[in-house]
Amino acid sequence: MEALLLRASSYAADVDGVIHLITLLAGFWFIVAEVVLFYFIFKFRKKNNEKAQYITGEKKEEMKWIHWPHNLIIVCDIVLVFFAIKAWYHIKQELPDPDFTVKITGQQWAWRMQHPGPDKQLDTADDIELVDELRVVVGKTYHYKLESLDVMHSFSVPVFRLKQDAIPGRTITGWFKPTRTGAFDIQCAEMCGIGHGIMGARIIIETEEEHQKWMESLSGNSVAQAL
């Protein structure tokens, strides 16, 4: 997965881990089934009309060939379930205590990102609200409070392996922790009408200093605006 999409959050490796495990286990059974299928097709093709065998599949030793792979698949499924739920619990149910909290509101065809601003507290006078742009500091744990004003949207940052639908009428809390700097895509993953395609936003992960410099540059003119 790394080759296709780089990892930029702490739990991206967990999701990729589950994906690789599934590729390994399910892939093995897939190859076994396809090889057996094509082998049977080749081996038992019609050869100078000798008759086929009469196998009812009711006898024990015939069904053995089905039960054994079947039981092994159940074992693989149990292993998969364990790792999938472990990753899910870590990402979606555990909430590590945050360094910052941002408020993300989806509306018809734009994302509003409310940053805590210099005083690091949300819902205070100095909050900075950007549209279609989220500025975060690398290495810090962020909580996001996700809401939607009108229809279903879905806040998705592919490089974070993060996705959470924004439901009108609910406030959903989640967390992420960026691990590398850069500017990446935010996509809306739930059909939300005519502008669903242009709802793209950018997440800009910067170092502590750049973030401070950006806030100062803003507080310069935002103070003027606030008066």
Binding site: I19, A84, I85, A87, W88, I91, K92, K163
Partner: peptide, 12 residues
């Protein structure tokens, strides 16, 4: 079907 990987794969 596995919830862990579906976080990323959902709606892609």
């Amino acid at each position: 079907g596995a919830s862990g990987s579906d976080i990323f794969f959902h709606d892609t």
